[in-house]
Amino acid sequence: MSQSPYPWQPWQPGQQGWGVMLASHADRERAVDVLRAGFGEGRMEREEFEERVARAYAARTVGQLASLVADLPQGPVPPSVPAALAPPAFVPVSRPRTNGKAVGAAVCGLLCVPTFGLTGIPAVVLGHTARSEIRRTGELGEGLALTGLVLGWLATAGWALVLLLLTAVSLAVG
């Protein structure tokens, strides 16, 4: 008879290969696990189970163990192993996105110079809104929001100063 690739296949006396290989403690434990599963499924009575377990622990070869479990299914089917996850070094890092209102605040703040301060108030409103959203959601863009706020407030203060001076001049003149 040819050599069986599986140690739990039925073994015939005189068979070469797995059947004559000395059994390890792990082989005995696997055989006892198969016996326990068979007993748990009601395939044998308690006395037969206990006798087979005693013979399994006394077995010297894999063939002797195989003959003890030959008439039983090979135990419960192991659950499928989930696919191995990639180590953290190879997983792409997801960066938080940049807050859109922070970008808008920075753009409006930078446009204050060419628009003579007309985009200052939108820069301030967008900057404050962006900073509160950034604190709440953990998005990026704190520097952009702060840039928009500073430039917006400077433009607004500049226009307020110009209007105040024009009012003072118009009152003085007449």
Rank of each mutant, 00 (worst) to 15 (best):
A106W: 06
V53L: 04
F116K: 06
A123Q: 02
P82S: 14
V91C: 06
P87M: 01
V77F: 12
K101Y: 11
L126W: 15
A66W: 09
P73V: 02
A84G: 13
S80E: 14
R36M: 11
G38Q: 10
F49S: 02
L68E: 09
C108K: 01
L110F: 08
I121L: 13
T98G: 00
A84N: 05
T61W: 03
G19I: 09
R30F: 09
R52G: 06
G63F: 10
A37N: 09
A26H: 15
L118T: 07
H128R: 13
T115L: 08
V62F: 02
L126T: 10
A23Q: 07
A70W: 11
V69Q: 02
V20I: 15
V93Q: 11
P92F: 03
E50P: 03
G63Q: 03
F49N: 01
A86V: 12
P79S: 12
G117E: 00
E133H: 10
R55N: 13
P79V: 11
V34T: 15
D33T: 15
Y57G: 11
E51W: 03
V62L: 11
A84C: 02
R131K: 14
P79I: 08
L65D: 09
F39K: 08
R55P: 02
R46N: 06
A56W: 04
E45G: 14
C112Y: 00
V113S: 04
V20K: 10
G38M: 07
V124D: 03
L65N: 12
H128I: 14
E45P: 05
N99K: 01
S67R: 15
A66E: 10
G75K: 05
T137W: 06
A130S: 05
L35T: 04
R131T: 13
V125Q: 01
R52H: 15
A106V: 00
A58C: 05
L35Y: 01
V93W: 11
G109C: 07
A105Y: 11
A86H: 09
T61I: 03
V77C: 04
S67V: 10
A54G: 09
R131S: 14
A37S: 13
R36T: 12
P96D: 08
S132I: 07
N99P: 05
M44K: 06
V62T: 12
F49Q: 05
V124E: 10
T137E: 05
A105R: 04
A58I: 05
A123M: 00
I121S: 04
P88C: 03
A70V: 12
N99M: 00
A54E: 15
S94H: 11
E29F: 01
V113Q: 01
L68A: 05
A70E: 13
V93T: 15
V77A: 13
V107F: 00
A89N: 12
